[in-house]
Amino acid sequence: MARAAAVTSTTPRPGEPDPLAATNRSGAVLSRLQLLVTRKLDGLLQGDYAGLLPGPGSEAGESREYRPGDDVRRMDWPVTARTTTPHVRRTVADRELETWLAVDLSASLDFGTGQWLKRDVVIAAAAAITHLTVRGGNRIGAVVGSGGDVPAPRRGRRQPPPVGPGRLVRLPARSGRKEAQGMLRAIAGTEIRPGRGDLGALIDMLNRPPRRRGVAVVISDFLAPPAQWARPLRKLRVRQDLLAIEVVDPRELELPDVGVLPVIDPETGELHEVQTADPGLRHRYAAAAAAQRAEISAALRAAGAAHLRLRTDRDWLLDMVRFVAAQRHARTRGTTR
C-alpha cells in the first residue's frame, strides 16, 4: 500500500492543545497506574521490581539449610517440617527498572486529520510511558529517529529516495523527574526531516550495546515494510519486556468521498490527485489498508510484543489506561498477553 497522506500543514493548528502539556495534566491519572513488567531485572540499585539475584527484597526465592547467623524470622517452616532439617527462605532483591523508548519521528508522522497530528500522539505516548515508569529511582532513556536527509523530489518524479538510517539521536537513561522532563522536551523539539527513515536501524540502536533487562517501548506508525524492522524487534524481545505503540490516522484506513483529493507522500514528496468519488477505489484502498494493518499486527505478535494502537481521532489517554488495566487484569488471572 502506498504511504500517501492528505496534504496538511506541519505547523500546529490554531487553538490546538499541546500534547506534552496535556500529558502533564494527565499525570494524576497515570500516576495511579504501573506498566506491567514480567521479566526479572538485573539492575544495581534498590527499586520496586523483582530482581534476578538473592538479596533483601519482598519476593520469596529458594530455600536453603539454616546456618548459624541466619535471621530466624526467615525460617521456612513447611520445608523444615518435611525435611526435619531447619531451612530458611531466601528472598529476591528488588531492583530499579530501566526503560528505553524508540521514538519514530520520520516524515510519515507529520500528518493527521483527527484532533492531533500523528507526531503529537507519539510525543504524548512517550510522555505517558515516562509517567508510568519514572519513580523510585527508575531510569528512562530514548533513541529518536527523525527521517532521512534526502530532499523531496519535484512533482512527476517517480523514483523513491534510497532508504537510509537518517538522523538517529540517543538520549541516555537517567533517573529523576527533572531529567525525564528534559528528555521529553528534547523529543518534542525534534525537527522532522524529509526523506525516508529506517525503523529497523532505530530499533537496533536499543540492541547495541546490549541493555540490562527492563522495558523497551517502540512508538511508530510501523508503515515501513515489516521485513525492515521485524528481526530487530524479535532480537530486542530476548531480554526486554516489549511494548509496541502503533499510531494511526483514520485517513490511513479509509478515504472519504470528497471528490478530487490531492495527496502527498511526506517521505518522498510525490504528489497525486485521487478521485475519491469512485467507490471501487475507496473499497480497494480500505482493503489494502486492512491487509497492511493485519500484516503489522502479525509481525508484532510474532516478535512477542504487547500491541497498543492509538488513533489521532480518539482519546489516547483513555486507550492507554484501558490497555494497562487489561494487561494487569490478564496477569492477575494467570493468563498471558
Rank of each mutant, 00 (worst) to 15 (best):
E98C: 09
V37N: 00
G55S: 05
L184M: 14
A6G: 12
D278F: 10
L261G: 05
H329N: 15
P68M: 09
T335Q: 14
L318E: 14
V163E: 13
A50W: 00
L45A: 07
P12D: 03
V143Y: 08
R89F: 00
Q327S: 12
R170M: 14
R119F: 07
E191P: 10
A201P: 01
M205Y: 05
R234M: 07
L36W: 01
Q34N: 05
E295F: 00
G156T: 11
R177E: 05
D319H: 08
V163L: 15
D18R: 05
G61D: 03
M75C: 15
R337K: 03
A4Y: 02
E59S: 08
V150R: 14
D204I: 08
R174W: 02
T10N: 09
H131M: 11
A128I: 06
G182R: 11
G55Q: 01
T190Y: 03
L45H: 01
R167N: 13
R193L: 12
I219P: 07
A102D: 09
E270M: 02
R231Y: 07
D221L: 07
D257N: 14
L30Q: 02
G166I: 05
K235Q: 13
A306H: 02
A21T: 08
V238A: 14
V247M: 13
L45R: 07
R196T: 08
A286Q: 15
G141P: 03
E65T: 14
L52K: 00
A128F: 03
T84K: 15
S220R: 09
A230V: 01
A277T: 12
N24V: 09
A102Q: 04
A298T: 02
V215Y: 02
P165V: 06
T10F: 04
S108H: 13
R90Q: 15
I296N: 06
R301Y: 06
G141E: 04
R337M: 03
P12T: 09
A180I: 06
R170T: 15
D48G: 01
G47S: 10
A127M: 00
Q115R: 15
L271T: 04
M205I: 05
G166C: 11
T190S: 12
V324S: 02
L41F: 00
G259Q: 02
L300Y: 10
P78K: 15
P160D: 12
R73I: 03
L199D: 03
G27L: 05
L236V: 07
L199H: 00
P162S: 12
I140C: 13
V163W: 12
T312Y: 08
L53M: 11
V150E: 15
L233H: 05
T190H: 04
R212K: 13
G280H: 07
G164K: 03
